[in-house]
Design a protein around this nucleic acid. Structure first.
Lengths: 213, 213
DNA sequence: ATTTCGGAAAATTTCGAGATTCTCGTGGAA
DNA sequence: TTCCACGAGAATCTCGAAATTTTCCGAAAT
């Protein structure tokens, strides 16, 4: 039987990949039929998703997927740089060998996947794998910062960021730059160079900071 | 009649001031009786409060007020400094005269209140007013940063920060330092000195960054 | 052509009862 | 004494129906 938590995870994944249109309404009645449960259960799950900012709630107007917005993507990117740079620097200070090992592992997995992606004709079978690996790498970067609050806040921003990019990142024409970027972040972090690490985190995300139309 | 939103606001205020014990369970059944509504309505409000981090939800375990924790307060302070400094600097760049006017007004209101607080025997009648004025000043600082995302994220952190301080700030023995701090932040911001502003925001919050026991 | 006004249809929200799960004190066994 | 099992009571969670509110659409008025 489908647990409450499974519904949450299913919808979260769908919202962060390509499962819904931007701006679409999340009708409790429809979802109820898909998951064989009552409207209240769906309602509860939607409230929990709104905790992550993946759906928006308005009194008496129900839930909907946030609109795609260049401005919001810029803002999310800005904050990601701020928190991810800070978190990575703290991890450099506190993480020790264990963190370095985890980071190397996460990077190896990601770069392996990205290399294969680069030469593949068909990207579809890699999409989900890549999303997971990329997320895991960035979460590992800040994983030793000793601040759950920072990690939770970053996670929230990351979810919304990924959601904003739902559509456009599926072509993977950015992939060779990305391989380079991830490598440079890893190198800077392993060298313990805090300023350079901040710079590389910033550069990696810079392509998402575009002027508002 | 008590609207859904009123229940939310009432509980939010109570959670941020002194209405509940840290770690206390939020029993839907009890609250239901106070607000004359069904348990589901309370449940919904509690989910919305958990969006702000003012209550914690655990599957099958209900909702409870977060524990008071020195470590969490440090983390929240750290992030507040990060976001508030960034937001203020952006406001300096984008805010213009309108923002300067709003900030001056907010500061005047706050400092008026703090001066009276300083000489009062009985702080109780000022507590709620001060909380509001202090919050308004800090929100005004970042109000022109042109990033709703930053403001929302900051608001969330501010709520949790205030909640962690529920008890101890009621003596107001810090008040004369605070007057000085707020003045220095205002001066630095009005002078357009970005580095100094960052510094002053940091100094103001530094008293909450204490070593973990 | 645009706006305004019903009123029907659809969606959201509330409710209380019943099902499920957890909590905690009691008693028995190691 | 310490640990585990058990069960009564209390809390959480789910459900479907009813109440409320919004949305939609066509007709009438400006």
């Amino acid at each position: 039987m489908m647990q409450n938590k499974d519904i949450f995870e299913t919808l979260r994944h769908r919202l962060m990949t390509c499962g819904f249109e931007h701006g679409q309404k999340m009708r409790a009645e429809h979802l109820r039929q898909e998951f064989y449960c009552s409207a209240s259960t769906i309602r509860e799950v939607l409230f929990r998703l709104s905790t992550l900012g993946l759906v928006e709630f308005r009194e008496q107007r129900g839930f909907r997927v946030p609109e795609k917005s260049r401005a919001v993507l810029n803002q999310l990117t800005h904050l990601r740089v701020l928190l991810e740079a800070e978190g990575t620097v703290l991890s450099i200070r506190f993480g020790g060998v264990a963190w370095e090992a985890r980071l190397t592992a996460a990077h190896h997995q990601l770069s392996h996947l990205e290399t294969r992606l680069q030469s593949a004709n068909e990207t579809a079978p890699f999409v989900d794998l890549w999303f997971d690996a990329e997320r895991h790498f960035h979460e590992t970067l800040i994983s030793a910062c000793q601040s759950d609050t920072l990690r939770e806040t970053h996670h929230q921003l990351y979810c919304r960021f990924r959601q904003q990019l739902m559509v456009e990142d599926r072509a993977f024409d950015f992939i060779s730059d990305n391989i380079q970027h991830h490598q440079e972040i890893l190198d800077a972090a392993m060298a313990g160079d805090e300023a350079l690490t901040r710079q590389k985190v910033h550069d990696h995300l810079a392509r998402h900071m575009t002027p508002t139309v």
